[in-house]
Structure formats: C-alpha cells, structure tokens
C-alpha cells in the first residue's frame, strides 16, 4: 500500500460522488440530446504512470481521443480523455447542428467531448463545493501510436494517477465513448483531503 491508496471509506465516498455526478450529467445530456443515456457503474483505480499506457491500451478499441484539462480550487486538477470507438458521423452531425456541407468530424467529436467532460465535472465539483475551469479540448490524434506517445510523455512527471473510467452509451444515436479522468498524484492527495472532510461530517 502506498501513501496514495484510498481507504475503503474514501473509495466508497469518491465512488458515490462520481455516481451522483454521472447521474445528473447524464440527465442533462439526455435532455440536450433528447435521448436516453445508459449508466454503468464507473470504475476507479489507481495506476502507476508507467502502467497507465498499458492499462489504457488494454481498455481501448478507440480510434480517436480528445483531451481536455480541468482545474479547480484546492489543487484539484487533471486531464480528461474522451476515447471514441468508431462512430456514425452523420447522426452525430445532425445531433450537434451541423449543416451537410460543413461536416467536420474532428470538430464534432471535440464539441461532444467538451459537453461530456464539462457536464460531468461541473456536477462533481458542485458536490464538493468547488468550481472547475477547463482548457480548450484538443484532438490528440486519430491514431493510437501518437496517443501512446502523448501519454508516455505526460507520464514522466507523475508516479501515480487515479483513473476513473466512465462509459456513455446513448440510445438513438450510435456512439459509445469512455471518459477517463487522469488525476496526478498531487491532486489525488488534495481530493483525499476533501473526501476526508465529507467523511468527517458523517
């Protein structure tokens, strides 16, 4: 056990915060997209930076990844990766209000990613009395090798990262995507402090 492992109570608390955030985010999303979003219980695990790439690679059949940084008060920050399996771009275009002659698939994915990330994290933040800011989302690559390179480079200054994996499945519109929140070591201890405060209230 290392200093950053979560206790059972901390894990339970974080899981519940994430479940609630995900529930509300899905509701907002479902209203916005006028569809139903299936919820799966999100998974939370701690990964060593050098294994992060393997662990993502294992999960992934993704063809493209969008990254968006987030940062809030009390040193809570990280990077959200939205990983897409091949999807039906014309439905998505319709969903996001694109005209037929301006089908920019990359832009659509970035639009959607931003919606998924910010809806989820806003609700998460409000539960812990925090507020998030976001960097502009960027398409890392539509090619897995470059994604690996990116992640390997990112990992150098982290020993551990918390990996929260959330799957979105949307009926009516054929897209599936996973959101992975990568939270660096320093931010994990900040999150733990917040969790401990919540737990102390009970």
């Amino acid at each position: 056990m290392n200093a950053f492992d979560l206790t059972e109570d901390q894990h339970d608390c974080l899981q519940e915060l994430i479940n609630v955030a995900m529930g509300q985010a899905s509701d907002q999303l479902a209203r916005y997209l006028d569809t139903f979003v299936y919820l799966k219980v999100p998974s939370i695990e701690q990964v060593r930076s050098e294994l992060l790439f393997d662990s993502l690679n294992h999960d992934l059949k993704a063809t493209s990844i969008v990254s968006q940084g987030f940062f809030g008060y009390e040193g809570i920050r990280g990077e959200a990766l939205l990983m897409y399996q091949p999807l039906d771009s014309s439905r998505l275009a319709d969903l996001l209000g694109y005209e037929a002659d301006e089908l920019s698939f990359d832009e659509q994915m970035i639009d959607l990613s931003s919606i998924l990330t910010t809806t989820f994290l806003n609700v998460f933040a409000s539960q812990i009395d925090n507020q998030m800011s976001y960097s502009a989302p960027r398409l890392l690559s539509t090619n897995l090798n470059t994604i690996n390179q990116h992640i390997q480079q990112q990992s150098f200054n982290w020993d551990y990262a918390l990996k929260v994996r959330i799957s979105y499945q949307v009926t009516d519109y054929s897209f599936n995507c996973d959101m992975v929140l990568l939270i660096p070591e320093e931010a994990i201890s900040n999150i733990k402090a917040v969790i401990d405060r919540i737990l102390a209230d009970f």
């Binding site: 907002q28 209203r31 916005y32 832009e107 931003s114 919606i115 809806t119 806003n122 502009a136």
Partner: peptide
Amino acid sequence: SSVIQLKNQTFCGWEQR
C-alpha cells in the same frame, strides 16, 4: 443552446475552424 441548457462553457478552436 448547449451553453444555455447545460450551463457549460464550450470552445471553438482554430485547428478545426
């Protein structure tokens, strides 16, 4: 409408547009 309804910030970058 996504900004109004979802109360979220959103972006549009030069690389795509």
